[in-house]
Simulated assay, not measured.
Amino acid sequence: MFAPERHELILQSLQRHGRLLVAELAAELGVSAITVRRDLGELDAAGRLRRVHGGAIGISPTTRPGNDADAGRGPIIGLVVPSATYYYADVVRGAEAAAARYGARLVLGVSGYDTAVERERIDKVLDLGVAGLLLSTAVGDGRGADLGDQLDRLGAPVVLVERAFGFPHVQHEYDHVRTDHAYGALLALRHLASLGHRRIGVSLRTSVTAHWLRRGIEEAAGLLDVEPFVSALVLSADGDDAATRARVDAFLAECEEQQAHAVLVHSDEDAARLVERAMERGMRIPEDLAVIAYDDVTAALAVVPLTAVCPPKLAIGEVACEVLLRRLQAPDGPRRHLSLLPELRVRASCGPISDRI
């Protein structure tokens, strides 16, 4: 395969996934990691992507040569999110890319999952005279009533991002674009069931995502020949202290007691920590324990590359921005409630139950 052909395939893969890893690209293209790194370097030099440690990410059209004259001609769009890192980094980048395509400018506010800070960030963004607001509020799904009439009083069109408030939680319907996380849970459990696993342990972070993952797990239990159980243990913690290891050990003991040889863990960090601790205890991955992570931000970088459910983070930002821009063009048009489907990326951490000796 000649370099131009590889470059085209690399750019197509980047458009689909939003980010690339050298190891995965090398396997996909059937070439060495050195060749992939050289290709990424050439594409970076040409302004087609941006090289990062271990791979590459896309670049906004606003950063490409020759686009300065187009910047700032369209409306200013506000984007307020709980975080600009980890999960939301790609959401922000997707919204930025979509805004640039339409000649709009994006202004970012970060709340840190604090509702009081969120209110301040929204006010600052609105004071800039934005035409509309993309909002991923710190208030989780099912708690829309906690917002009261805040959304109604914003005075600008709003598109909710990764949130799905509606009647009766709020008085008015708002456009929203979200990941179908319930489907993501179903994807994970369906894959484990296809490998022969029936008893499946689940560890969920205390998060908005968990609200929907639980729904998907309940649905999977009714549709598939599986018996998932959601642990009361929360594995997530900063660092790797004794208390964190104790929770991981307790979860592994719970899985052993339940005769579960497969787990679904939200998020990547917790799944990676679980794998490392299981291996320290002499367990084999995936022979003794099959693991699926949820988020797929760092899953491929774990000591055993993790099979993971990957929400369409980049597309969420892009589509939400496009919905808002359409709302600005047609204020009285029908409301849009859009759910985008995640995908399952299969790696080394999953195997059939028959492989266990």
Rank of each mutant, 00 (worst) to 15 (best):
193 A>H: 09
177 V>W: 01
263 V>P: 04
206 T>S: 13
222 G>L: 06
337 H>W: 05
115 T>I: 15
41 G>M: 09
129 G>H: 02
56 A>H: 00
160 L>S: 03
124 K>I: 10
158 V>F: 11
66 G>L: 11
225 D>H: 11
50 R>E: 13
353 I>G: 02
115 T>E: 13
124 K>Q: 15
321 C>Y: 00
261 H>E: 13
141 D>I: 03
134 L>Q: 06
186 L>V: 04
263 V>Y: 08
166 G>A: 12
92 V>F: 11
203 S>L: 07
242 A>K: 11
7 H>F: 11
353 I>D: 07
65 P>L: 15
102 Y>F: 14
203 S>W: 00
218 E>I: 05
298 T>D: 14
306 L>T: 12
103 G>C: 01
334 P>C: 00
338 L>T: 10
237 A>M: 10
186 L>R: 12
170 V>D: 05
51 R>Q: 14
267 S>I: 09
148 G>H: 00
216 G>V: 00
180 D>I: 01
329 Q>V: 14
309 V>N: 05
127 D>I: 03
178 R>M: 15
81 V>F: 11
153 R>A: 13
327 R>N: 02
37 R>K: 15
150 Q>S: 13
135 L>M: 07
203 S>D: 01
106 L>I: 09
352 P>R: 11
159 V>W: 04
228 P>C: 03
5 E>S: 10
262 A>N: 06
262 A>M: 08
302 A>W: 05
303 V>L: 14
225 D>T: 01
352 P>I: 07
179 T>S: 11
286 P>L: 08
187 L>V: 00
230 V>I: 14
127 D>Y: 09
24 E>C: 01
328 L>Y: 08
283 M>Q: 13
226 V>D: 09
102 Y>K: 14
51 R>I: 09
38 R>C: 03
94 G>E: 07
64 R>T: 15
204 L>N: 00
165 F>G: 06
7 H>A: 11
63 T>L: 15
91 V>K: 10
131 A>L: 05
322 E>A: 13
176 H>L: 04
111 S>P: 10
8 E>D: 14
129 G>E: 08
122 I>R: 01
291 V>Q: 01
201 G>S: 00
218 E>K: 04
56 A>T: 05
195 L>D: 06
46 A>M: 12
67 N>M: 15
61 P>C: 00
7 H>R: 15
87 Y>N: 10
178 R>W: 04
54 G>P: 02
74 G>A: 06
215 R>K: 14
295 D>C: 06
22 V>D: 02
128 L>R: 13
329 Q>L: 15
69 A>G: 14
303 V>R: 14
125 V>N: 04
25 L>A: 05
285 I>C: 08
27 A>V: 09
266 H>P: 05
345 R>Q: 13
93 R>G: 04
54 G>I: 08
332 D>H: 13
205 R>S: 15
195 L>E: 05
124 K>S: 14
18 G>R: 03
121 R>C: 13
242 A>E: 14
31 V>P: 12
219 E>N: 07
107 V>T: 11
195 L>P: 03
288 D>N: 11
201 G>V: 00
222 G>Y: 00
197 H>V: 11
